[in-house]
Design a binder for these strands. Structure first.
Lengths: 338, 338
DNA sequence: CCTGGCTGTTTGATCGATCAAAGGACAGCG
DNA sequence: CGCTGTCCTTTGATCGATCAAACAGCCAGG
């Protein structure tokens, strides 16, 4: 590991001062074009690269985003975070940002991590996933004025466009509208929904997509829809049990749309391919089973997160006065038909 | 974001000098017990935490490990890296290390990333996954004397205990010995192997586990084993095709052991549960399908990687003279029976 | 000819820690 | 009493960058 050249080396090579080199890198517009080119040549020929730690010490910014790696979910959709992380790391890298991982067993532990990472100036913004109603992490971050964006809406808040914090989410309701519409287009009429127990924002949102589509496009009564509306825990085994139950409904459902690929897998194992099934998340499992599935556009989510974090808002809700950009993004998912 | 206390603040609170505070943190044994306690109390009461960037600037160490997030594999086993990362991040955190992510489209791009991350003193060691024979990344890292450990053996090298670089791997051969032994114990005799085309170190290793167990514990001839030895690409669809082919063999196989859960899923979809199938990787899919599967002990792998990286070897093969610790770890997988 | 404004560049101080070397207290010994 | 060696603590310099302010050169205006 050879010694790296410093600004001073570049400066003397180019016949200018340290600060001018720094200006070329940080505020090139204030340097005369001719000087700038000379410095840039010196930078290139010496293979100079700024020392990140030194810069961070002075600027008190780390250009690093921290993301928590969830305790292993053990779910079929576990690789979702993986895909999101990949998209985020790639885009962050392009924008000159780094992505740091951390883990925490629970919320208090995570808040302790916040402190640790911030104090050391290791990190200057957070991306929170798996948020929920009454999330203490959000309160802490707001209180300490730390930039952050959540992947997940603030469920339970009256007006979600309210600038309490920045967020990006996928429009699950739209996803289920697509899924339900798709099977209806293919001739189904009695479409069952296999989802999670009421109370989870995400689950209810997806259910609403199914229900509103059914109400709009079929003449099934409320009561009939209630019968077609199943709620079980996120687990293929539970999905199988529910699917067998669905099959006994008379008249039998034409199709099943699910809140997740886990449930879809369970349904598929129980029912085979007699009944069209649509999953959610477009995991490898759906691909392997040949199931249609709603794909979250994680690239777009990552893009949105970074925009909010390093764009005009700089990760703070209402922080940038007079910025018209929306303080959230609702990404439309896509239906992958198989 | 309140101003953080610095060493100087702690020093004056404790009535000592900066350096003594620093010593308490870094080399506590040289500080008198009484002084140390006084300083520790001051640290606690001020909630002092060292500024990571400042320390890094001075020490030229970042206590940060970089791991590449693979281009999305889209495989059933995609979440393996996820689980490994989680284990690594958790253990690294406990040891005071951070884990930084990066992405790269190909090897040259990854090597460019090495340079970028090292120059900025962002990172002082790398963990490489998905290594292969003739990996140019390894040559580069050795040449530039950068500490690193690979998750994956140096296939194609005569003596793998050779200290060319540090590595950790899972003993796939042992895994297939377990899997094959298990179905033999349950009464199977003609056990087929569903794996990948010869040439991949990992795949051949797993195949060898199956083959040696069959040779040792059954009286099937070489030719008979050759018939039971299938090789297809890593994809459930290909797995299904191969499994249907296997079923036509006369006499029919009693069981199938697979090189991956993807293949096992394919086999399971093609054959149902008539034939016992054992997968590899213990992914959520195997769990959902109720398939037995060989579980890589990723916790142990992560542990091993960190040991090599921050233990006596400090990430350099042969670097630490007189250290007797082995320069690699071969982790034994476990069979999860379902 | 001096002053003021503007542009572009340089200088000295600083961020918060650690390193290297010096310094002080005290005991043991001649 | 003075010298030496231990043990512990302090002092000044330094890591590599940016900030803030000073400075030089030039032109326009009085």
């Amino acid at each position: 590991m050879r010694r790296q050249p410093t600004v001073t080396d570049v400066a003397s090579a180019a016949g200018v001062s340290r600060q001018t080199v720094s200006n070329v890198l940080n505020t090139p517009q204030i340097v005369r074009a001719e000087t700038r080119e000379r410095v840039e040549r010196a930078i290139a020929s010496l293979h100079y690269r700024p020392h990140a730690s030194a810069r961070r010490l002075r600027t008190r910014q780390s250009e690093t985003i921290a993301v928590r790696l969830d305790p292993v979910t053990d779910g079929i959709s576990g690789s979702l975070l993986d895909r999101f992380l990949h998209a985020l790391a790639e885009r962050a890298g392009r924008a000159g940002f780094r992505v740091l991982l951390y883990t925490a067993a629970d919320e208090p532990a995570e808040i302790a991590q916040f402190g640790r990472l911030l104090d050391g100036a290791d990190v200057d913004a957070f991306v929170l996933t798996s948020t929920h109603h009454g999330d203490t992490r959000i309160d802490w971050l707001i209180e300490h004025d730390v930039p952050f964006v959540t992947f997940g809406r603030p469920w339970g808040v009256a007006d979600m466009t309210d600038p309490e914090h920045l967020w990006v989410d996928v429009d699950g309701r739209h996803g289920l509208t697509l899924a339900t519409g798709h099977v209806l287009d293919r001739g189904a009429r009695r479409v069952a929904f296999l989802g999670w127990p009421a109370g989870s924002g995400t689950g209810d949102d997806r259910r609403a997509g199914w229900r509103s589509t059914m109400e709009a496009r079929t003449d099934l009564s409320r009561a009939e829809l209630d019968v077609l509306d199943l709620a079980v825990e996120e687990d293929p085994t539970d999905g199988s049990i529910a699917a067998r139950l669905v099959a006994t409904i008379d008249p039998a459902p034409d199709a099943i749309v699910c809140a997740s690929d886990s449930l879809a897998l369970g349904a598929r194992l129980a029912l085979g391919d007699r009944v069209p099934i649509v999953g959610y998340d477009d995991t490898p499992v759906a691909r392997a089973l040949g199931l249609s599935s709603v794909a979250q556009q994680l690239d777009e989510v990552a893009e949105g997160v970074l925009d909010l974090l390093i764009g005009a808002h700089r990760g703070r809700a209402g922080g940038a006065e007079g910025v018209d950009d929306p303080q959230h993004r609702l990404v439309k998912p896509r239906l992958v038909v198989r």
